[in-house]
Design a binder for these strands. Structure first.
Lengths: 197, 197
DNA sequence: TTTCCGACTGAGTGCTCAGTCGGTTTTTTT
DNA sequence: AAAAAAACCGACTGAGCACTCAGTCGGAAA
């Protein structure tokens, strides 16, 4: 990350929290200005418009997710694919907790509406999902080689597991119930789902 | 449903589609007016404000979900809890497809923001989720009695299964990938997850 | 026939908002 | 130290917004 003015960084950080909690349309530049102490003019000096702030956040989020997942997984070796799967799930939940605002934005409708019409948004979203699903898939493939995971379609099962884990994160972020309380249940479920019969 | 003026029904229907696809804040009364052919004044004659339209939609959705699930499940008998679970999953996916706009709204951030501050919204959402999770839970309990489902925590496992199914619906509605293509995989996963070992 | 009422109308209103602009301050370069 | 560039400021603008209101209309009750 190249160095960035204090104000610009503050604007991005505040916008991330506000977009996540209030939504895009309901977050006003005046608010962003008062929260960060930057004048409205300053915001438009750094970003050509409101949408561009969101795109920057999404792009930064993509970089964080792709980099951190790769770094975390490269760091360690796994005996079995099933172990790797458990680690992917655990790291996903941990990471989503650390990046709560970013994941809230990823779970928001407005980002998908933009993705439909704007390639810059779509590309970032696709990169994020592809990276994540691929990790789940790799674990399944590895597990099928070493016998720790049964004979399932790797991509499809990866999507199902991803759906479960991501759904739990969403429920937690939407305050429906606490994902942490279901962690053990989730890991058990994944194990039962994937183990050879 | 008591009889309702043509215009009012048209406003509700159009608002459901617009709120679902464009979001609440990005749907303007002028649009609702031009789409339905009702004057803006007419909209405010039937609903005291924009939020009240959303509340009416949510409340109608709650009634539909609770009624239709109860009706569908009361209609049939199941040999085993596992069969019942499969039917709940299948009906959930079918129903979510039929009520795509309503489910999109249920998956939108704005509804949860309103639920935080407004009891009218919170109560409807809670009733919907409670009804749905309880069906999954009942299937598990029945399955544990007849031996078709293993020894898991019924409520927690119901939440996990609900997470999977609802997550799939969300992914489909957000155009991430087609839930239909994963239907068989999903049913298999649920079966493996819950079967006695 | 008159009265009344619910459904409906659309121009009008005041306000909120994203974005602009002319200028100042701070930092970097020479 | 001077000049240039980058960062910052906040009053201002005008478009667009939710909502209002005085009034029309058709049909049912009195």
């Amino acid at each position: 990350m190249t160095k960035m003015s204090k104000k610009k960084a503050a604007i991005l950080q505040a916008a991330t929290a506000l977009f996540a909690t209030k939504g895009f349309a309901d977050t006003h530049m005046s608010e962003l200005s008062s929260v960060t102490g930057a004048a409205e003019g300053t915001i438009f000096y750094h970003f050509k418009n409101k949408e561009h702030i969101l795109l920057t956040i999404l792009s930064d989020t993509k970089v964080s997710i792709v980099d951190e997942f790769n770094a975390h997984m490269d760091d360690r070796e796994f005996e079995t694919g099933m172990e790797m799967m458990e680690e992917v799930v655990a790291f996903y939940l941990l990471f989503a907790g650390r990046m709560e605002y970013q994941f809230l934005i990823l779970h928001s409708l407005f980002i998908y509406r933009l993705a439909e019409s704007r390639a810059e948004f779509r590309d970032n979203l696709e990169a994020i999902y592809d990276c994540l699903v691929t990790f789940f898939e790799q674990a399944i493939i590895k597990g099928q080689e070493d016998g720790s995971i049964g004979d399932v379609n790797p991509r499809k099962s990866a999507l199902i597991v991803f759906t479960m884990v991501d759904g739990l994160v969403r429920f937690k972020n939407f305050n429906l119930y606490d994902a942490g309380a279901l962690f053990n249940e989730l890991i058990d479920s994944v194990r039962r789902m994937l183990k050879p019969n």
